[in-house]
Amino acid sequence: MNLKRFFSRSASAPAARERLQVLLAHERASSGDSDLLKTLRDEIMAVIAKHMQVDGDKVSVKMERGASVSTLAVDIEVPFDGGKKAA
């Protein structure tokens, strides 16, 4: 029970340390709005909006910031009649 939990619990400080190091590396690099991922996300969305009507709820943008590699995944549901934008 409690005693078992106490002894099996692993230290949490190393996790805090690692999370902070990754986060701050990104925040320091992105001061002054020069965040590459954010720019990419905004421009990609703008290009897509030019060619089709984008329903905000049907778009999912996910960013995963890692220590050395970050990924940006844009997932858009394209409706059948969405190919043409109403002129």
């Binding site: 949490s12 400080a13 340390r17 902070l20 701050l24």
Partner: peptide, 15 residues
């Protein structure tokens, strides 16, 4: 900190 449940002085200094 010694138990590993709080950031160590060196951790904060390094960051």
């Amino acid at each position: 900190a010694e138990r590993g449940d709080m950031l160590k002085v060196e951790d904060v200094l390094e960051i």
